[in-house]
Design a protein around this nucleic acid. Structure first.
Lengths: 116, 116
DNA sequence: CTGCATCCACGCCGATACTG
DNA sequence: CAGTATCGGCGTGGATGCAG
């Protein structure tokens, strides 16, 4: 390890990772696609319903970025009305253990932190 | 696991975790304090110099939030000129393996992604 | 040296309406 | 159903100057 060159964002693995998954919503989307749904593809409307607190416009945007970064796979069925299903790529699935670790870390260390 | 209730951000461990560490800079700061410096405390000016691409105002802000969330410890020496040293708390240190995993994940999966 | 205050521009994000 | 288009407010962050 220690290949991460923190002084220069352009060559910093951590920075690059954060550009892919560091947004407010992306971890939740990946978690949803990977664990909550047992890896089954989900339609846009379903994702939108579960993550109802994310506005539609932003959800579209986040999904597009995740697809561009190779974390999720977007499959479009040529039907009317249209059907689009999202699922995790291998790269996205590789992230699941890390997200689980983050959840554990969060649960183990929330002593003094008070939520509103 | 699976205690994370993704439908409701208020009771979602992943969301809470992301509120603490999901910003653009916080993982880098923690990584710097924990690994790059071998856990030794760092003065503000030194952090600012290494992470030169973060503006001073934002760095102050991020450090304050990290302290509030219990991830780092701020020690102020009553000297003139003032000296302030930052180091990781136990909670912050517990995050280091996760950050390493993220780096590995990033390095293992950057095939088709092109950086500018 | 470290941190705060002020100002200001830019970008994000929600709301809404519209298309195929 | 799954997006796109547009607008507008508000928050975020950079620059600068000041304080302890």
């Amino acid at each position: 390890m220690a290949r991460t060159i923190i002084e220069n964002p352009t060559h910093c693995a951590l920075t690059h990772a954060m550009n892919s998954i560091g947004s407010k919503w992306k971890p939740l989307i990946i978690y949803l696609l990977g664990i909550k749904s047992d890896g089954l593809p989900l339609r846009f409307g379903r994702i939108n319903a579960i993550l109802h607190y994310i506005s539609k416009r932003v959800l579209v945007e986040q999904l597009k970025e995740l697809e561009t970064d190779g974390l999720i796979i977007r499959k479009r069925y040529k039907e009317i009305p249209p059907r689009v299903e999202y699922s995790l790529s291998e790269k996205g699935r590789a992230l699941l253990p890390i997200l689980e670790n983050i959840c554990e870390w969060s649960e183990n260390h929330m002593g003094h932190v008070t939520f509103e």
